[in-house]
Each structure stands twice: as structure tokens, then as C-alpha cells.
Computed example of a mutant assay.
Amino acid sequence: MIAATWISVRSRTQVLLPGIIASTIVAAAASFLSEHYAAPVMLFALLLGMAMNFLAADGPCKEGIEFTARSILRIGVALLGMRITFEQVASLGWGPVVLVVGIVTATICVSVLLARAFGFQSLFGVLTGGATAICGASAAMALSAAMPAHPAKERATLFTVVGVSALSTMAMIAYPMIVQWFGLDDVEAGIFLGGTIHDVAQVVGAGYSISQEAGDTATIVKLMRIAMLLPVILCVVMIARAQGAEDGGKRPPLLPLFAVVFVLLAAINSTGWVPQTVQQFGNDLSRWCLVIAISALGMKTQLKELATVGFKPILLMLIETVILAAMVLAILYFS
């Protein structure tokens, strides 16, 4: 029996390996370009992957690319739990916690309403709103992994990743100027930047461009937004289960395995027993898994498919970004 299992595993590995290797090579190229041209690595991975979409057609790489876009994505999301500790969240007090919970909830609710007004499904509003409110491309991919299968899901995910990466880069440049214009101090600046910019890298870049204190505060607030990923995923899964029950389809699990691992890693990380080198390794591995997964997602999509989406989703994400920034700025300025 052991021999038969080994043969089965080896056979499966041989089928998946070409696609995994192809996705990893594209991810490595994207990381190289990101480091040398100071642009979001997720965006490079997506664009390079789309340029290599012929590999996802019938051939030796197809199954491996499918596996990478699905399973390695979940591994990367689960490892995001290594980024946060409960002590980091508690260190800022209840004020920022309430702020983060409020703005994330409000942004997603407004996004759902806007999506319906624009003629999209509610789950598309959750996808774009979650990406805007939580942690950019990583949140988009995590929420997509928790959503039920749909013919347009992958296209919507890719479009969200492109949009949120571009908006995050523009915010990194523009928001420090807004901070100076409104005369926010370093702590307030950190709360604003950490509470509004989509991706972690851009939050860090914008925060530390102002001061060490602003950078530290921005990073912690951003990590608190990342912690909101779990309850949002849980809400998405519950909605999907309800829809599955209505449609007579199979219900997804109440809490996906990758979400459970996310919580467990965050809890373990909160004990203080995890060495810094292990934390850094987990963060790096998470980043690589997500970049490899988005490369595979790009390979599964053609440019002409994204071109059919139209202008409305761009406008939707822009409005979401502006609303999020306005809410945080109003709370800081008038409180």
C-alpha cells in the first residue's frame, strides 16, 4: 500500500511540477523587475503571467498552473497570520481598533451598494471593497479563494488586483502630501496612512518617508486591517453557504482550512515564542506564495477577457478608495 501511495504521489508531482516551475520563474522575474523599477510586484507578476497565458492552454503546464492558482494561493494567505500578533493590535488602544473595524465594515458595505448600483453582483462589491479596506491584492486573492466558483470570478479577481495595485501606488505618492496639507502629527499621519493605503509595502514606504514614528504607527494599523481578513472571509463563506442552500448546491465549509491556519499562526505568533528569523521566513514565504499564485492566475487569463470588463469597475474601485480616505481623514481631523 505504501508503495502504491508513493507511486501515486510521484505521478501527481510529475504532472504538477511543470506548471509550478513555470509560475515560479514568472514570479522570480516579477520580483526582479519590482526591485529594480520600484513598482508593485503583484502587478508585474500579473502582467508577466498574462503575457505567458499560452502555457495554461492544453499542455504539460496546465494542471500545475491550476494547482498553483488555487492551492499555493491558500498557503500564502494562511501564512499572512505570521504578520500579526494580538499584542500589536492592543498596543494602540481601543481607539484605532474601533476605527479599523468601522472603516473596514463601512467600506465593504458601501462597496456592495455601489456594485449593485453599477449592475454588478454583491460578491464583486465584497471583493473590491475587501481589497480596498483590508490589504489590497492579498485580500482580493484571499476573498476570491473563499468565494464560490463562478465563471467570471478569476477575471474579477485579476481586475481587482490590477486596480488595487495601481491605486495603492498612487496613494503612496499622494497621501504623504495630504498628511502635510492637513497638518497631521506623526501618530495621526501613521493612522491615516495605515488605515487607507491598500498594500503593506506601500504603507511602509509612505509611513517611513515621513518619520520613524509615523512608519511604526502606520505598520501596526495596517496589520490591524489585515486581522480583519478573517471575519470578512467568514462572512463571505456564510453568504456562499446560504446561496448554496438556496440553489441546491453543495455548501462550502463554514471556515476554510487556510483561514483556520491563519488564526492559529497569528495565535502562535502572539505568544512571543517565535524567533524573529522564523517570523521573517514566514512573511517571505507568504509573499512568494502569493506572487507565484498571482503569476499563475495571470497565465489563466487573456487580455481580451479583461478588456470586456469596461470602465465601471475602475470607477467603482476609485470611488471606494476616495471614500475610505475621506472617512479616516474626517475621523482624525474632527475628533
Rank of each mutant, 00 (worst) to 15 (best):
Q88M: 13
M177E: 10
L285V: 11
L254T: 14
A57Y: 10
M172I: 03
I75P: 06
A38M: 09
A242E: 15
F120A: 05
V15G: 11
I331G: 07
A218L: 01
S286N: 02
G310K: 01
A326T: 13
Y37W: 15
R155Q: 08
D186N: 10
M177T: 09
A78V: 07
M327A: 11
A267G: 12
I331P: 05
I197W: 07
P176M: 02
P231M: 01
T308S: 15
D199W: 04
V98A: 15
A56V: 05
M224T: 15
I173P: 07
S91A: 12
S286M: 03
A145N: 09
W273R: 10
V200R: 06
A240M: 05
S270N: 10
W6P: 11
V291G: 05
L184T: 06
P275A: 03
M327V: 10
G19T: 08
V15D: 14
A149G: 14
F334D: 11
F44W: 12
A117M: 11
V260G: 13
A307G: 05
Q279F: 09
F334T: 15
F67P: 10
I7R: 15
L184S: 07
I314G: 08
G183L: 04
F54T: 10
D186V: 09
D216M: 11
A142T: 05
S286G: 05
M147Q: 04
M42D: 02
R225Y: 06
F44I: 08
V291W: 02
E246K: 12
A28G: 13
N283G: 12
E87W: 13
L297W: 05
I173W: 07
R225K: 11
A30C: 06
S71A: 15
G215F: 04
Q243H: 06
A38S: 11
I134D: 02
V291H: 04
T196Q: 03
T5R: 12
V187F: 11
E63G: 07
A296Y: 07
G282D: 03
M1E: 06
G95A: 14
L223F: 12
A30K: 03
F54Q: 12
V328D: 02
L318H: 05
G207V: 04
G76F: 01
A78C: 09
A78M: 11
A45L: 00
